[in-house]
Nucleic acid binder design. Structure first.
Lengths: 230, 230
DNA sequence: TAGTGTGAAGCCATTCACAGCG
DNA sequence: CGCTGTGAATGGCTTCACACTA
């Protein structure tokens, strides 16, 4: 609806700001200055101002940003008008943990189906969701108008993404360490734990510096972050 | 040792190339061209050449890159001379899944300790590792010369990072959705599942484009990616 | 003739710096 | 006076382009 076309990293930072803003609201703080908002998150004040500007919200030079108004604006821009539905494929260790992690995480995103190919898992309960067989996937996606898919299967099974996309999924969170081949209009966010751990191991030897959320970069490369070391 | 000081995204891409190279080696392919290496991964040929150049490896205009030689060079630059040790704090659902994910993942990185504060968990087995109490953490880190720490606890418990760093950890993989405060020489790789899922949900509505691994950006913001949509 | 190696150009995200305002 | 809003400058990664080579 309100298509602001924010880029990956701005988006990630805004979400991080929001977490802090919610704490501020809970502690009844009315206003924040850009440096107070960015500092604890490892973001410069200039960056915060630029990001808020992208949001289309205006602060007050004397008082800073009004917490509740900024939160409202973020909700309007970042959140879906109605709740979105998601499906998760792969009820292994990681998949199950993700189901429990995302279930009830936010009322804005609901997992409506958990799938696996393993006959031993089908029919069992995974943190409140019945594990179903893969052949039900297209039907569940269409019936619930699912537009988010989570892939938590081994690399050699990541081809399920095609089934998802054909059935209508527009965004995929992929934990399988492979490049997914999807049409340009489908967004893929890769979370590659293999790369992450190897990178930490490498950096623990060589250098310093830090990073934040897990995203990617311009156009397609990888992911991006939000804050720094400090 | 061989400090090439590669940046986050180059590093991520190299690791992704390596996976493909290993498949090529398995299928007894001797040489690859830059476009054949990058194409399936959503990376341009120019980018591949640039990255390989950073590695200090030279290809052959007629045949491309020799698979085994490039893999050797990568091992020399990316891998630790000896195996590195890691500890994981937080034996909840996500933490346990990570233990099983990383155990035996690579001989180059071994989890030598799993910790939690929950008395009910202490003493139990977590995929082959005994869960210990937090007070043992410094001793285990020092004794095993651990330099990688994995944090899989709720945000309000992420302060354990200080204990890790004080005991000698130089790199941290943080799954807690908060900014860690660490000295500049300690590297933090943030994997923020909250941001990732929210970003997918947002993009599933708005745009397209894709991303790869999960890292951060220049200096400190967040994370970066490796490949694109396609 | 096709592919590598690489200086130079291009592109963006971040940072600077300063006008404007309360 | 300090902070916001923002055009302009910076800086770094990516892409272009082309000399070079087999």
């Amino acid at each position: 609806v309100t298509q602001h076309r924010l880029n990956r990293q701005t988006l990630a930072r805004l979400m991080v700001y929001r977490r802090l803003l919610e704490q501020l609201r809970a502690s009844e703080t009315d206003y924040v200055f850009s440096h107070a908002l960015g500092g604890p998150l490892g973001v410069t004040a200039a960056q915060v101002r630029r990001d808020v500007m992208e949001l289309g919200y205006l602060g007050n030079p004397a008082k800073g940003y009004r917490v509740i108004d900024l939160l409202d604006r973020m909700a309007a821009v970042l959140d879906a008008a109605e709740s979105q539905a998601a499906v998760l494929v792969g009820a292994g260790r990681l998949g199950s943990a993700l189901v429990s992690y995302f279930t009830n995480w936010s009322p804005k995103l609901k997992i409506v189906g958990v799938f696996d190919t393993d006959p031993a898992k089908i029919g069992t309960e995974v943190y409140g969701h019945a594990c179903r067989k893969l052949s039900d996937l297209p039907r569940v996606i269409k019936r619930n108008k699912v537009d988010v898919g989570i892939i938590a299967v081994p690399a050699d099974a990541a081809a399920v993404v095609k089934t998802m996309v054909d059935a209508g999924v527009r965004g995929v969170l992929n934990f399988a360490p492979v490049q997914l081949n999807v049409p340009d209009e489908v967004y893929v966010e890769q979370v590659d734990l293999t790369v992450s751990i190897e990178r930490v191991a490498y950096m623990a030897r060589s250098g310093s510096a830090a990073a934040l959320p897990g995203g990617s970069d311009p156009g397609n490369p990888g992911s991006d972050d939000v804050a720094s070391s400090r």
